[in-house]
Design a protein around this nucleic acid. Structure first.
Lengths: 103, 103
DNA sequence: GTTGATAGTTGCCATAGTGGAAAGCATCTG
DNA sequence: CAGATGCTTTCCACTATGGCAACTATCAAC
C-alpha cells in the first residue's frame, strides 16, 4: 500500500506506451505509433518524457538505423508496477461495497 | 472491450474523487477534501469539472446548508465503470506475459 | 554519388489544464 | 451584529500538450 500514482506514467498516452513495453519487452517505435493515435512529433515527445525520467531506453538496433526500438528500464518497470498498484488501490476501494450502501 | 479512457475522469484527483463517490454513494465534500491533498479552490474546480460533465451531483443536504454533498449520477457511474474497464484492458495486456518474454 | 523516400526529432506556436492566493458569498454560531 | 466557516470564483503563473513545418540522418534506387 501507499503506492503513489506516478505523474510521468499516468497521462493516457504514456500509460499505454508503458503497458505495451512492459508486456512486449522490446518494441519498435513504429509499432507503438500504430497503436496510439498520435502525430510523430507528439509521440516522440511522449517517449522522450519517459526516456528523460529514466523509465524507457531507446536504441537503434536493426540494420536500418533510422528505426528506434524501445524497452523499459528496470527503474521504469518498477515505477510502472508501483503506478498500477496505486491504481488498483484506488479503484478497488470502489469494487468492495461497504454494507449498507446503496450503489 | 473497446472501452475508452475518459479524459474527464482520468486525471488523478478526479479519478480519486470518482472512486470515493462510487464506493461511498453520498459524501460530504469535506470528507473528500481530507483524502486529497488539494487547496479548497483546486478541489472546487475539479469537482466542478465532474459536475459540468454530468457525472456528479451536488446538493446541500444537512441542516448546515453551507456544506456540499456529492454523489455520482447514473451517467457518472457508467462513465467511471467504462473508464476502469479501459484501464484494466490496458494494464492487463501487461500482466499476462506472453511466453518467451523475459520481464 | 545523387535523388527521393523514410524515421524520427526539434522549434515554434497556440491552446488547454492545473493550482494557489485572495476576494467574494452565503450561512452558521455566539 | 460580528466573526467564523464552507465553498466558489477570479486572477495569474506555470506546465503540458499537440500539430505543423523544418531539420538530421539514413536507406534504397538508379
Amino acid at each position: 500500500m501507499t503506492a503513489e500514482l506516478d505523474p510521468i506514467i499516468h497521462p493516457t498516452h504514456r500509460l499505454r506506451i508503458c503497458a505495451m513495453l512492459v508486456a512486449g519487452s522490446t518494441l519498435e517505435l513504429s509499432v507503438i505509433k500504430e497503436h496510439l493515435d498520435l502525430s510523430p512529433s507528439a509521440l516522440s515527445k511522449q517517449v522522450a518524457a519517459l526516456v528523460d525520467a529514466g523509465y524507457v531506453k531507446q536504441e537503434r538496433l536493426g540494420s536500418d538505423t533510422r528505426r528506434v526500438w524501445l524497452s523499459m528500464t528496470r527503474e521504469g518497470r518498477k515505477a510502472y508496477q508501483g503506478h498500477v498498484a496505486a491504481l488498483r488501490e484506488i479503484v478497488n476501494a470502489t469494487t468492495v461495497p461497504s454494507p449498507g450502501q446503496h450503489n
